[in-house]
């Protein structure tokens, strides 16, 4: 990477290709504009996270297989999803540090002519932006600061916890996403329970509890007078955006908080048009606060 462009293999996971191309489209736009080269995986499979509850070994081998593919390509992995990051990072760290476990997993991998060597890193988008690209470069890329916009952050769980596994942010007071948001000129407001879970991982067995968890978060966000919620995980995004009308119906309330991928917020501030960032794919439509930035026409400026 020295002297050249930062280069990563992009790990898309399952949720993004299944139903959230808005995240992928906006992420590719802003990363490319920041001089990052994204390389496609020659092949991959699910990160293993959804299988961990029923069989830990299956989940580990699924993750390790992806890491081995990245090792063969000789590039670090960049994930857009917190779940993928959590699974791949955990297994990567564990197999690097624990020789016995590495040998045990390598026995499985032999069947696929693969061997875990421990030569790459797994990074989430937020870590790539904050650590590898850096605040200065992002700040310099802002052409249209989103001043007057008040937003709230939802970092999600697996890029902050467990602390001893991730260790890049303070799980009790997460700063990385907040700082990245503030670079866009928007104000990232404090609210109660910023570091709490969206509830999505158990939606397959119980809808009521996650909907209550998400509703409570949205209530706190409204109390803090935020005009939009910013996410960096497709699971969390689905919970707050796609499911928001269902939450409104269940509790018989109007919420109306637009939920943006961080890459959409950053893209807007960098001067991309809303249609280039797939804003039309959002379920909750932009409110008046957000609209003034979306209706902006760059040709009228100067």
């Amino acid at each position: 990477m020295v002297g050249g462009k930062p280069k990563y293999l992009i790990f898309l996971g399952c949720v993004i290709p299944y139903r959230l191309s808005s995240y992928e489209i906006s992420a590719r736009k802003v990363l490319s504009a920041l001089g990052v080269e994204l390389v496609e995986m020659p092949e991959y499979n699910c990160c293993g996270f959804p299988i961990d509850p029923i069989n830990h070994d299956t989940a580990i081998v699924l993750a390790a297989r992806n890491i081995c593919i990245a090792e063969m390509e000789g590039m670090n992995l960049l994930t857009l999803c917190n779940g993928c990051f959590g699974s791949l990072h955990k297994v990567n760290k564990m197999l690097k540090e624990d020789k016995e476990e590495r040998e045990r997993v390598n026995e499985y991998l032999k069947n696929f002519d693969m061997e875990f060597k421990g030569s790459i890193e797994v990074k989430h988008l937020v870590h790539v932006l904050a650590e590898d690209i850096g605040f200065e470069k992002i700040k310099n890329s802002i052409k249209k600061p989103l001043s007057t916009l008040r937003v709230a952050q939802h970092p999600g769980c697996h890029i902050i916890r467990p602390r001893k596994l991730v260790g890049k942010d303070d799980p009790e007071n997460p700063r990385l996403l907040k700082d990245l948001i503030n670079l866009t000129g928007a104000k990232c407001v404090d609210y109660r329970g910023e570091n709490e879970c969206c509830g999505n991982p158990i939606i397959g067995v119980n809808e009521k509890i996650p909907f209550q968890m998400a509703k409570e978060k949205l209530d706190h966000i409204i109390s803090a007078k935020a005009e939009a919620l910013i996410t960096v995980c497709p699971f969390c995004h689905i919970m707050f955006d796609l499911n928001q009308p269902r939450i409104e119906k269940l509790f018989n309330v109007k919420i109306g908080i637009p939920v943006l991928h961080y890459t959409q917020l950053l893209g807007l501030a960098m001067g991309f048009l809303p249609q280039e960032l797939a804003f039309d794919e959002l379920r909750v439509k932009p409110t008046i606060y957000l609209k003034k930035f979306l209706d902006y026409n760059p040709t009228l400026e100067v």
């Binding site: 509850p53 769980c157 697996h158 916890r161 467990p162 009790e172 709490e196 879970c197 158990i202």
Partner: peptide, 12 residues
Amino acid sequence: IWLCTTCYTCVD
């Protein structure tokens, strides 16, 4: 036991 979301707050 299937209601844990794996948010890891308890772990921390």
